[in-house]
Amino acid sequence: MAGLFNSPLVTLAHKSLNFRTQRHDVLASNIANIDTPGYKAEDLVFEKALNKALHADKPGPLQTTNARHLDGNQTPSLNLVEAKRINSATPFVKFNGNTVDLDKEMAKLAENQMMYTAAIRMLQHQFRLMKTAVSEGR
């Protein structure tokens, strides 16, 4: 037990909220620049990396017979996960070189907001559990 607030779930929610906030920035930038000539739409990807890090406590592929052996597990721990900024793929480019697709951006925005709310709910739930524990179930 690494402490009350250090459970992987809380760290996951914390990381997720941070990334979602940054992703919202990126998506809002895309929408703001929908009519800017030559602007390239961007996106932030982190879900796979987070998912991988969440299961990083599983042992790696190598057998270990000593505590000092390395098991070949290369995934970084949860709080070291970085988000990657990529150019979002668009099948068509507008005549002014702009690659923002409004429908896609709005969909991503809505998805991002919902996932953010989901992470908040998860944290709220976690905190409620802790509260129950510290108040001895009363």
Partner: peptide, 27 residues
């Protein structure tokens, strides 16, 4: 028409950010 649609899209993004901030404050 395109300008007013783009304006609405930005307003929606603004509201989304506001909603997220409010959700965080409720934590």
């Amino acid at each position: 028409m395109t300008a007013s649609r783009s304006y609405e899209a930005n307003a929606a993004a603004f509201n989304a950010a506001k909603g997220m901030a409010q959700a965080a404050l409720e934590l």
